[in-house]
Design a binder for these strands. Sequence first.
DNA 1: TACTATTAAATTGTACACAATTTAATTATC
DNA 2: GATAATTAAATTGTGTACAATTTAATAGTA
Lengths: 141, 141
Amino acid sequence: MTKEILKLDNQICFPLYAATREMTKLYRPLLTELNITYPQYLVLLVLWETDRISVKALGEKLYLDSGTLTPMLKRMEENGLIKRTRLKEDERVVEVTLTEQGKQAEAQAEKIPLKFLEQTNLNEEEFIQLKRILMKMLDEA
Amino acid sequence: MTKEILKLDNQICFPLYAATREMTKLYRPLLTELNITYPQYLVLLVLWETDRISVKALGEKLYLDSGTLTPMLKRMEENGLIKRTRLKEDERVVEVTLTEQGKQAEAQAEKIPLKFLEQTNLNEEEFIQLKRILMKMLDEA
DNA sequence: TACTATTAAATTGTACACAATTTAATTATC
DNA sequence: GATAATTAAATTGTGTACAATTTAATAGTA
């Protein structure tokens, strides 16, 4: 007899894991139009706000390390969305900036959040609660 | 000026994505003792309950396809946790079962859920709310 | 100033995750 | 009963994730 605590239905982290992947599935068709993935979309969200950012600072914002970011940013550079430049003042640092194409993608992306929301079955109250709890989880991370 | 709707802080899916990865980071040291990953842990949770299951049914439970499961199950088989057997009655189907070692791992795993909970900063009410909302998201998937 | 410590990216290697296709077996239909 | 359609896994190829290590540059210190 399996302990109740080890049953799949009693896990909290499994729905978290599954819902995240279902969520990115909803985004995927919207992002394919821009020829980007979900993590790449997050990088663009940051750059549309900040214009330029180091790989390290970007990693702190997105909870990703250079092992993930370096190859991903190289792909985005190849696709003409961003530029990677080593800083003159400190050659250890690589700064990421948007290309013209990367800047223009923002206009195209404007409709994504609403299109995503249309596909979900959560109401506003649930979104607020969900976000509050997830942010609290991330607080200690 | 970036539209408010495109700011990272205003996204709901980013905290979902980030919290999931932070959650698996908490699990990782607990699972390394058993020499398994988080998705492999989910497979074991299912098998501890059901004894035998087809790859297809497993995929439906975990929201994963054969492209992910086949290589993962092969690794688990190599590590001696499970066995993969083609059904005599229908040779298309591969059934997954636990080995002795896989069964015995359950005893070791019993302390994982509690150890995980100790590391989080959410209270019971928040866990209940979080789970309810995530399950609703998964309903439509 | 040499030497050490620290820091930021990049690299290496392993493991998901998933779209798209292929393979092999079974079922449905004529 | 032969053929077409469907089904279940496996395969192929691309893109994250992340631990661990390496490389190169800067900062700190005797």
